[in-house]
Structure formats: C-alpha cells, structure tokens
C-alpha cells in the first residue's frame, strides 16, 4: 500500500514538473509549483519524514508561492517563446540523466535497512537520544543538539539572505490609509482572517514548543508565524501590516535570533563546557539539554519569522518600475 502511494505521488510530481516546463503563463506555473510542493510534502509524510513535510508544506506551498506571485506581478506574466530552438539542451539533459541512472544501479535498494547510510551515525542518534537528550523527537535532538553547529550556520545563511534582499529591494513604507483596490469586497475575507490570525500565531507557538515531542521546531514555527502576518497584510493592506510589525523592528529581531543562538553557545563556554554544549546549562545534563534546545529553537524561530517577513515586505512594497517610479497616490 505504501509503495502504491509512493508510486502514484512520484508520478503526479513528474506530470506536474512536465506541465511547469511546458506552460508559458507564469501565473499558472506559479500555481503548479505550489501544487508540486504540496505533492512533495505528501510524499515526505509517506517516507516518514514528518518534520520535513511540515516545513515543505509551509515554505514550498505557502511562502514560495507568495514570493513568486509578487515577482510575477513586478515582471511579466507571459514567458516569450525562445528565439532559438536548439536540440542541444535536450541532448545535454538526456545524457546527464542517463549517466545518473547508470549511477543509481549500484545504489542499495529503496528501504533497505542494511544500506550504508543507516549504519553510520544514525543508529547512535536513535539509541542515545532518550538518555542523552531526553526528547522523543530524534530530528529535533540531532538538529538542535548533536549538530547544533550546522544549524547555527544555516540560521546565519538565512539571516544573510534577508540582509541581501534588504540591500537589493529595501522596504518601502506605505501609508496606513492605502488599501487594496478591492478592499470593500473583502469583508468576509477580512473577518475570517481576523479570526484566524491569533489562531495561526498560537499554532506557531505550539509547533515551536512542542517540537521536542512531535513534528515541529523553530524553522517551521518561524514560517507559520510569518504566514499569520502575511495573511494580515493580504487582507488588511500593507500599510496596516507595516504598522503592526514595523520593518525596522524586523531587522532587529532577525539579528536578535542569531545572537540568542550564539549567546546560548557562549553561555555554555562560560559555564565551563564547550561552545553549544547544553549539559552545563542546568544542574543535570538532561534539563540542560532541554533548556538549550528550547532557547536555540526560539532563536531560530525569531530569525526565520523576521527574515521571511522582511523578504515579503521587500517584494510586495516595491512598486512596478522600481524605487524611482512615480507614486500613484
């Protein structure tokens, strides 16, 4: 049964992928990309990667789609037919694909429990997590504790990307009175959005603090938190959203998350341990691990939410034609 679902989902992914290449309307392609992400999130659930599925659903199908839509709105909606139609790309792709398929023939079969990938450090992580870290979710323990250095690096990459988008696009403040053109048609949507807004933020906090026990953690929580504000901005106008959470504050928060993460590392050093060693943070090692994981996940969540909102504001506050374009109001 599991195989059947796997086969069908991969087939759907392939069809969606081909449709994305063939279609010329970039709006349609954006929606198909969102569907493609949703299919891959479903596939991740079938493949037991629940944490990954949650991330992919929130990011691929949610935030990426909004960013692509904003880009299409600032550029062109239809892709031009390529001027030169050469068979060279097709040939290159076919040859590369054939070489890669030849390469897979030596690979261990799908689901093989004796594959080398399962015999290295992974069994140790699964066996030692209950005693050493004391959290049931092994993904969280590896992410936040065993491989805490990696995660710190990745949070820094996200922060840097936020700074990059800020440097390229900037955030332009809108007037509070500036409403979406169809503001008055959106009454039902606005009421529903108001109802959902606190629930989304609450769910984000649940995902953050329950990440030790179930799927979730700082990355997913940050994205879901940002989604709440994106929904608010979409229904209540960008000007209002920029008052609720000012872009200047977002810049400080993005840096604060990375700093909180590093501070936990340095605190471990000050207490006589190594950088990012949580065992020394409390009286006994397991509560130290709990505290450390909670703090760094919070740091990750703050940075991710702030960077995604900076990126979102950067894209949607830009007027078509650029910063120098005439203000229509």
């Amino acid at each position: 049964m599991q195989h059947l679902v796997d086969i069908v989902l991969l087939g759907l992914l392939m069809i969606t992928g081909f449709a994305i290449v063939r279609m010329r309307s970039l709006l349609a392609v954006t929606m198909l990309t969102s569907i493609y992400s949703l299919f891959s999130a479903l596939l991740f659930v079938v493949l037991d990667a629940v944490d990954v599925a949650l991330t992919e659903a929130a990011i691929g199908a949610g935030i990426s789609t909004i960013l692509l839509l904003a880009t299409v709105a600032l550029t062109t909606e239809y892709e031009k037919v390529p001027s030169h139609r050469s068979l060279l790309p097709l040939l290159v792709v076919t040859l590369t694909g054939a070489a890669l398929i030849y390469g897979t023939l030596d690979m261990p079969h799908y689901g093989d429990p004796n594959a080398p990938v399962h015999r290295h450090v992974a069994p140790d992580y699964i066996e030692d997590t209950p005693e050493e870290i004391g959290v049931p979710n092994v993904v969280t323990s590896v992410l936040a504790s065993y491989r805490g250095y990696d995660t710190l690096g990745e949070v820094t990459v996200i922060f840097t990307a936020g700074v990059g988008v800020l440097a390229l696009l900037g955030v332009h403040l809108r007037k509070r009175t500036e409403q979406p053109s169809d503001y008055h048609k959106l009454v039902v949507l606005r009421v529903i959005a108001k109802l959902f807004f606190p629930l989304i933020l609450l769910f984000a906090l649940y995902v953050l603090f329950h990440g030790d026990y179930g799927p979730g953690g700082g990355f997913q929580a940050g994205v879901i938190f940002a989604t709440g504000f994106v929904l608010y901005a979409l229904t209540h106008g960008l000007g209002n959203a920029e008052r609720v959470i000012p872009p200047a504050l977002l810049g400080i928060l993005a840096a604060a998350g990375v700093l909180l993460y590093s501070a936990v590392g340095i605190e471990g050093m000050l207490l006589g341990g190594k950088f990012l060693e949580y065992n020394v943070l409390a009286d006994d090692p397991v509560s130290g691990q709990h505290l450390g994981i909670l703090l760094i996940e919070t740091g990750v969540g703050i940075t991710v939410a702030a960077v995604i909102l900076i990126i979102y504001f950067g894209f949607v506050s830009r007027r078509p034609g650029g910063a120098d374009a005439q203000d229509p109001s």
């Binding site: 990954v52 991330t55 990011i59 992410l143 990696d150 990745e154 996200i158 990355f219």
Partner: peptide, 9 residues
C-alpha cells in the same frame, strides 16, 4: 529540513 528553509532564502 534546514536545506528547505535555506532554499527559500
């Protein structure tokens, strides 16, 4: 998991 978030960035 982290690659997805970095991928978005």
């Amino acid at each position: 998991l982290t690659a997805i978030v970095v991928g978005l960035a």
